[in-house]
């Protein structure tokens, strides 16, 4: 046994195999431990990491003449020694077969939807026309976020949200509505730190008012099912919904100061 464990060739082989397994399955296993669902590890990542490990192993075995010689021994033996003929012949059959199989997998026709690449947040316009009126978005804060208006606005926004938005964006603002599974891309989750928490209220106002059809050409295709809410709601109602979204989700909107624009 020690003949194998102390031998640089077998050590290297073990390191590469174990590393591959860790990269392929180990990484994906980690998020699950803290309750996060893991995305599959992309093949390119597996390839890169395995290549790094391989280079490291080669550097290690070759940095010392004696180790390098010992490393080559089993390879050389398999190539020339008469009593290794079985090993030699089977390697010569198995390796080309594996290569052929991998090649076949690569070139055979596959069925998959076109990849969709898009930036998360589209670039907002500086101003929009809302029902014939021009609204300058840049530097604009929610006009209902005033001490005497806020409470009524929240109640109005709540009512409107559950009548109009809940089927897709969900009771808990988590995109868990009963219509959500019917749309691709799926509706936006409004909780958490990555969506509206990154945005100013005027950005949210714009997205609600203009919906999917109002998205800019650049950055697309969007294929958004978001309705054009200016067809259904007044500006005040949209501001009320915007205010409600942040307050109900318990997150603060990004302000224009953070955006670096002085009012």
């Amino acid at each position: 046994m020690g003949r194998y464990t102390k031998h640089p060739f077998w050590q290297s082989l073990a390191v590469v195999v174990v590393s591959y397994a860790l990269i392929r399955w180990g990484i994906a296993y980690l998020p699950g431990l803290v309750g996060i669902t893991s995305a599959p590890v992309p093949a390119s990542v597996v390839l890169q990491y395995t290549a790094i490990v391989l280079v490291g192993v080669l550097v290690w075995v070759s940095d010392n003449e004696e180790r390098w010689t010992r490393f080559k021994e089993p390879i050389h033996a398999a190539l020339v020694e008469p009593d290794k003929k079985v090993v030699r012949m089977s390697m010569m059959a198995v390796v080309p077969l594996l290569v052929a199989f991998a090649t076949f997998n690569n070139v055979r026709p596959t069925i998959s939807a076109p990849a969709s690449l898009r930036s998360i947040h589209p670039a907002p316009p500086t101003q929009i026309t809302f029902r014939g009126e021009t609204i300058v978005l840049e530097g604009l804060e929610n006009p209902l976020r005033e001490p005497d208006l806020e409470e009524a606005a929240f109640e109005l926004g709540k009512e409107l949200y559950y009548q109009n938005c809940m089927p897709c964006h969900g009771d808990y603002l988590n995109a868990g509505g009963h219509y959500a599974p019917g749309f691709n891309p799926t509706p936006l989750e409004l909780r958490g730190s990555s969506t509206i928490a990154q945005l100013t209220e005027s950005f949210v106002f714009w997205r609600i008012a203009k919906g999917g059809p109002g998205l800019p050409r650049e950055g697309g295709p969007w294929n958004s099912a978001m309705p054009v809410w200016e067809d259904f709601l007044t500006a005040d109602e949209i501001w009320a919904v915007t205010l409600f979204l942040y307050d109900q989700a318990g997150i603060a909107p990004r302000t224009w100061e953070e955006e670096g624009i002085e009012e």
Partner: peptide
């Protein structure tokens, strides 16, 4: 599709 793996096999 069948040629490519055959070539790869022969080459290797």
């Amino acid at each position: 599709t069948y040629m490519a793996p055959l070539v790869a096999f022969l080459f290797t």
